[in-house]
Design a protein around this nucleic acid. Structure first.
Length: 194
DNA sequence: GCCAACGTTGGC
DNA sequence: GCCAACGTTGGC
């Protein structure tokens, strides 16, 4: 019996709250405190072995900074029904509606991929452009397709090998601008000679 | 600190 | 079920 195909996700955390460096030290961490239905639904689809990009949000350089694995499927989020916990949800005390998963450290990227780089790449790569991270900026737990997963890893490898992802994009933009200018000039000439 | 893009709440 | 008001997220 073969195991179901691995799925990919992206989880966000403010590094001032909980960073990937902290996860690297802890090895495992209960991913609790998610209080959004869409994000929760994604938590519920997670299975042990699934992979996640770890994203640092609300910081100097918002970036995909590494990866982690799902170590345990979703179970009721105990912090939601604990009145003393900062993530206590008063409306959850009767029937806890929130869940948490257990994540396990996998890798810290040598070079992070910033949201800025992703947005630049999005203009030339439709796979990147379609990522939930760019389309639903407020979602904290989201699926990542195999294609998207690979595209980000490819970017990461290229950056690690010294390629300037923003520089490349600027060159392309300059070329496009030149093409547009040429076209405009051509039109201008055609118009003036007619 | 600003603001856009949402998600949630509650009156009707 | 609609929608206005309000709250939150997160990039900049």
């Amino acid at each position: 019996m073969s195991s179901p195909p691995r799925k990919n996700f992206l989880v966000k955390s403010e590094p001032s709250e909980y960073s990937i460096q902290q996860l690297q030290q802890d090895h495992h961490q209960e991913w609790d405190g998610v209080r959004n239905y869409t994000a929760r639904n994604h938590l519920n689809t997670m299975k042990p072995g699934d992979k996640c990009f770890f994203y640092h949000s609300s910081c100097k350089l918002p970036s995909i900074v590494g990866t982690c694995r799902i170590a345990r499927a979703a179970q009721p989020d105990q912090t939601a029904v604990n009145p003393k916990h900062k993530n206590f949800d008063p409306k959850s005390t009767e029937s806890n509606r929130w869940v948490s998963v257990l994540v396990e450290f996998e890798a810290l990227f040598e070079t992070s991929i910033t949201i800025k780089e992703l947005r630049m790449q999005a203009t030339i790569n439709p796979v990147i452009a379609n990522m939930s991270l760019l389309r639903q900026s407020r979602l904290s737990v989201m699926p990542v397709s195999d294609e998207e997963w690979q595209a980000v890893l490819d970017l990461q490898t290229r950056k690690e090998q010294g390629e300037d992802l923003e520089q490349l994009q600027q060159q392309i933009q300059t070329k496009e601008k030149q093409r547009r200018t040429k076209r405009t000039e051509k039109v201008a000439v055609t118009t003036s000679t007619s």
